[in-house]
Structure formats: structure tokens, C-alpha cells
Write a protein that binds this DNA or RNA. Structure first.
Length: 588
DNA sequence: GCCGTTTTCGGCCCGACTGTTTTCAGTCG
């Protein structure tokens, strides 16, 4: 999948380069293809191997032109067109454009006028007040850019889990094929499913450590090696993230896994328990003097320390899990296979890439009982948001597809839904009569992110009070490492959710992960029900549920807290606007 | 550069908001 990311990046930068030149339409096409390839579940190299350029063209958004660029890259490692254009603008396009408020046009004349190539060049120029002289740039924009840069820095060089996990998994699969590797595990913050990841930690069991460390330091993804010994290598990968690999004998694997999984706070507490018993715990084992008490599995170690239950990695944060494990009172967390449906799905009716039927077929393959189609509505103009008429047409279309699926003995039900926009005053951009006909109505904020805390909170609560609104989608609006959540009083929102029986969404899209764990925990404790949705805009994105489940697990959620663990009938009953006729109709 | 129940050519990329400006360029969703 490494190639996918590289190709996606080139296509993205190519899109920006054309945008810088003011070429119409082309950039959007390139960007679309870039996004699709980035989230593709299959390796482009494999697709190409299977059927060449023709097969590549089956990827949505990829036509002859882009397929040929991909071919060129796979064969030669270069894309000429890209490199020629890059000569004119030898700048860090991806880095600069990731700063809020900086777009392609800015990047173009920042380079032309001030020779700005990197984010740090930009920061220096902005601090020196050099931007304000440029056309259409003033003090405010300068300040905005500095704020954007500061926010990016706050990320502390951490990467979103959605960027890192696929890379870690593909590396794991490859490394496991090195002769001599008995077992390989990913530890660290990835194993704990933290929202952002600082580096990758691979643990390997092998009797021939040096073969493994040598092989690892030479894989093509490695940019440079910081340090390398017989059992440990530390490298910087080309994607910019650091990775450590440690080789161990089988007998100390559990201790190492426990140690390298963390979190630091959790480990400190666990070690205290060992000390209390006169023992010591480190990455090699739980020991009393020279005698090893436990080391091969995590389970033994926790058990010897008085914990009959092993705290799942997701909750190892020293937030009560150790006490609960000691008392055998850990909750039975929601499992990764517990969800029966996905309730936020966009299709080609608006800004999604696949048709209703394509999304539904994938849902069947995933074994779901139901999905809700929730395309954008009117006021989100860029997506071709639906008005009442379009929604009516879509409802009719869904009925047709449901009938077809039923004939084929499918167990899947497609629910009619929408992702409606909450307007400034809390009203919705679709009339109530139409909303009442939908099975699932999600409401969301897509504009005016900078309202005051009071206004924003009141606006959302007003929407929750509409009896047709079942769910609030991505309730805080954040994009990880990119956009802060809007100001909103979550305590009030949670109270209102309880009062109005509105469901809160855990948006599983790895860019969003919204609600975040603390808010999920608050909602759970208040008895507010939640759903976990992918916010998928394409078939591969439907696989994102696991990120949301991890998010819920980190907040100690059980099956009962998440209503899309319920079978269809019960699920519909759990919705606010439950209406007997709707259910009968849907099931028939 | 992509795409097709309006099309194999001619559409697609719309509207709000911001910050810069005296009429609009650039960004974002």
C-alpha cells in the first residue's frame, strides 16, 4: 500500500500545480483520483499487474490519462509531467497547503515573490511581516497563517492513526515474511488505538535477531537509520514517521509487549504493584531477584500481579482500568465485530464516489443487516446537496433497490436518510414533512464554525429539539491535525441529547474521530446512546468502522451504549422518530 | 482529466465567507 500513498501524493501535488496555474477542472479530477487511490483497500501495483492500464481505469475517477501516469510511476518511479511542473515550483506543496488559509494561489505567488519553499520559510516571512505587502494579503491573513502553522506544530509531529495504521499493517505483513520471524506485533500507541501516533513500534520474536534488524534497515520505505544494534533498529521512514523494531526471544515476548504498549502512566502503576510485592517489572519480565515469575504472555504477568483480567490495550491509560482489573470489574467492551449497520453513508447522489447499490453490496459483504444512505442536503451546494424533490427521488430509488435485494434473498435493508444542515438559527435546510418520511435523519454543522460558544451550542440544541432529528453527526466538527473543533458546550449538548432522546454519533472516519473519547465517556455516563458510523464517501471507506469502535472502547463503551449493535427492528425502535408504519414498510 | 438514464463531446466548479478591497480573489466545504 506504500505505492498507493506515493501515487496519491503525486496526483494531489499535480492537482495543486494545475490549480496554481489556474487550469480549470483538471485539478478536481486529479484530486478525486488521489483521494480514491489513497483510501483504496487494494494495492495499485497489484491491480496493474492483473490487467494493466485497462484494469486501473476501473478505479472510479481514474481514466486513461491518470492510469498512464500510474503505469509510468510503477515502471520508472517517476512521473515526467509532475517533475517538469515541479521544476517551476520546487516547493513543499503538501506541507504548505496543509496549513489552514493557504491555498494553491498563495503557494504560487509566495514562491514567485518571496521564494518561499517550506512551512518554516513561510513562518519566518510571516513573523517578519513580509506577507502583508503582497497582493491581497494583509495583517489579518498574516496572523491567520501564523495561527495555522502554530496549530500544525501543536500536533507535535504526530500523525493521525488513519495515516499510520495502514502503513504499519502493510509493513507488518512484509516483515513477517522475513525468514526467521516467528511472530511480529505492533505495540505502542497504535496498539492502544490512540488518535494520533508518534512512532511505530514493531516487536519481533526470532532466534536470529541480526538477520531481522539488517533486513528492516534496508527496506525501501526507510529514509535513514538513526541507530542499529543486533536486536534493535531505529529509523525514519520516508513518510516522515519514525519506526523502531526490537527482536526478542519468545520467553520475554509478553513482558516486552506489555512494556512497549504502554501507556507510560499505565505502566508506572503496574510497576508499582510489582514493587509492592517485592518484585520488579521491565521489558524482559516480572522477576524476583534473578528468578523470573512471568514473562511469556501479558496474561500471566497481569495475573501474577493480582489482575485476573487483562485490561484491553485501548484503555491502558491509568484511568481506573487497573483498579477495575484488580477487582475483576472491567466492563465487557464493545467488540470489533459487534456492529450490525452503518448509518452515515454518502453516495454519488452527492459527493460520494459510489452508487447506492455499490455501497449496499459492500455492506452485504461486510455482513451488515442495515445501512442508512445519508447524502448531503441543499445548502451544502458544492456537493450537489439534495432538496426535498431530490430526496423523494432518492427514496423511490432506495425502495427499488431494496425490492431487488429482497428478491435475491439479501438480508440487508437500506434505510432512507439524509445528512441535513443545521442553519445558523438551528433550523434545518429540509422541510419537516420530508424529514418525517426518512428512516434516519442525521443533522450536522457544516458552516459558521466560528460562532460564539453560546450561539453554537444553542444552534445545535435547537436542531436536537426537532422531533425528526435522530442523530447529531460529527458533533464537534474537528478534523484531526487540521481544524479545531468549533466552540460548543458538550455538557449542555449531552444533557439536551438525554432530554430529547437524540443519538450522538461517533464518526469513525479517521480524519474526524468525532466525538472524541472524553466526550464519549461523558455521554455514556449520562446514559446518552450513540452510534458508530464511517461517514464513508466511497466503498473502501466503509472499512473505517474499526476506528470508531476503538474510539468507543477507549471510552469504556459496552454493546448496550451503541445502538447500531442492535438488530434492525430494535434499532429502529431506539430512534426518536420511531414510527410503526415506517418499520413495517421497511421490513416488508 | 473524467464521465455518460441529458451527452463519446461538452459539461463539470457552487456558494458562503474572509479579507482585501472600491468590485473581487482566494479558500473551504
Amino acid at each position: 500500500m506504500v505505492k498507493n500513498a506515493e501515487i496519491a501524493k503525486i496526483l494531489y501535488e499535480l492537482a495543486m500545480l494545475y490549480e496554481m496555474k489556474g487550469v480549470p477542472f483538471k485539478p478536481r479530477a486529479l484530486e478525486r483520483a488521489s483521494e480514491t487511490i489513497d483510501s483504496l483497500a487494494r494495492d495499485v501495483a497489484d491491480i496493474y499487474k492483473k490487467g494493466g492500464v485497462k484494469e486501473l481505469q476501473k478505479i472510479p475517477g481514474v481514466g486513461l490519462g491518470i492510469a498512464e501516469k500510474i503505469e509510468e510511476y510503477l515502471k520508472s518511479g517517476h512521473v515526467k509531467e509532475y517533475e517538469n511542473m515541479k521544476k517551476k515550483f520546487p516547493v513543499d506543496i503538501a506541507g504548505l497547503s496543509s496549513i489552514e488559509g493557504v491555498g494553491p494561489k498563495h503557494i504560487a505567488f509566495l514562491y514567485e515573490k518571496l521564494k518561499i519553499k517550506t512551512v518554516s520559510d513561510l513562518e519566518r516571512a510571516a513573523k517578519a511581516g513580509k506577507l502583508r505587502g503582497l497582493p491581497r494579503m494583509g495583517e489579518k491573513l498574516e496572523a491567520k497563517i501564523l495561527k495555522g502553522i502554530a496549530f500544525k506544530h501543536e500536533g507535535g509531529g504526530r500523525f493521525g492513526i488513519g495515516e499510520v495504521l495502514p502503513l504499519a499493517r502493510s509493513l507488518k505483513a512484509r516483515l513477517s515474511k522475513i525468514p526467521g520471524v516467528e511472530t511480529i506485533e505492533i505495540a505502542g500507541s497504535i496498539r492502544r488505538w490512540q488518535e494520533t501516533i508518534g512512532d511505530l513500534d514493531f516487536l519481533v520474536i526470532s532466534e536470529s535477531p541480526e538477520i531481522i534488524t539488517n533486513a528492516f534497515s534496508k527496506i525501501p520505505e526507510v529514509d535513514h537509520v538513526y541507530a542499529k544494534g543486533p536486536t534493535k533498529v531505529m529509523v525514519r521512514l520516508k513518510t516522515g514517521i519514525d519506526a523502531d523494531l526490537i527482536v526478542l526471544p519468545k520467553k520475554s515476548f509478553g513482558a516486552a509487549l506489555q512494556y512497549f504498549t504502554g501507556s507510560k502512566d499505565h505502566n508506572v502503576e503496574v510497576r508499582k504493584l510489582a514493587v509492592k510485592k517485592g518484585w520488579s517489572l521491565n521489558e524482559h519480565g516480572l522477576t524476583k531477584g534473578k528468578k523470573v515469575i512471568a514473562s511469556e504472555t501479558e496474561k500471566e504477568i497481569y495475573k501474577k500481579l493480582g489482575m485476573p483480567q487483562v485490561p484491553p490495550p485501548e484503555i491502558r491509560l491509568n484511568k481506573g482500568e487497573i483498579e477495575a482489573a484488580l477487582a475483576s470489574k472491567l466492563p465487557h467492551l464493545i467488540e470489533y465485530g459487534d456492529l450490525k449497520g452503518d448509518l452515515q453513508i454518502q453516495t454519488s447522489w452527492t459527493d460520494g464516489k459510489n452508487s447506492i447499490e455499490e455501497m449496499a453490496r459492500e455492506a452485504e459483504r461486510l455482513g451488515y443487516e442495515y445501512i442508512a444512505i445519508t447524502d448531503h442536503t441543499r445548502s451544502l451546494a458544492m456537493t450537489g446537496g439534495a432538496d426535498e424533490k431530490k430526496l423523494e427521488r432518492q427514496m423511490a430509488e432506495i425502495e427499488k433497490i431494496n425490492a431487488k435485494f429482497k428478491k435475491q434473498n439479501s438480508k440487508l435493508t437500506i434505510l432512507k436518510g439524509a445528512e441535513v444542515n443545521i442553519m445558523k438559527n438551528g433550523s434545518l435546510d429540509i422541510d419537516d414533512k420530508t424529514l418525517a418520511k426518512l428512516d434516519v435523519v442525521g443533522a450536522a454543522v457544516h458552516s459558521l464554525f466560528n460562532l460564539s460558544r453560546e450561539e453554537q451550542t444553542a444552534r445545535i440544541i435547537k436542531a436536537m429539539e426537532n422531533p425528526n432529528v435522530d442523530i447529531i453527526f460529527h458533533p464537534t466538527g474537528r478534523i484531526i491535525n487540521k481544524r479545531k473543533p468549533y466552540e460548543v458546550d458538550m455538557e449542555k449538548i449531552i444533557k439536551a441529547a438525554k432530554r430529547t432522546k437524540t443519538i450522538l454519533e461517533i464518526d469513525a472516519h479517521p480524519w474526524r474521530l468525532d466525538l472524541k473519547d472524553e466526550h464519549i465517556r461523558m455521554a455514556r455516563e449520562a446514559g446518552v446512546k450513540m452510534v458508530i458510523d464511517t461517514d464513508a464517501h466511497s466503498v473502501p471507506e466503509m472499512h473505517y468502522l474499526e476506528y470508531g469502535i476503538a474510539q468507543a472502547r477507549r471510552a469504556w463503551c459496552e454493546k448496550k451504549d451503541i445502538i447500531n449493535t442492535l438488530p434492525l427492528k430494535e434499532f429502529l425502535k431506539a430512534l426518536k422518530q420511531f414510527d410503526f408504519l415506517t418499520v413495517v414498510y421497511t421490513i416488508l
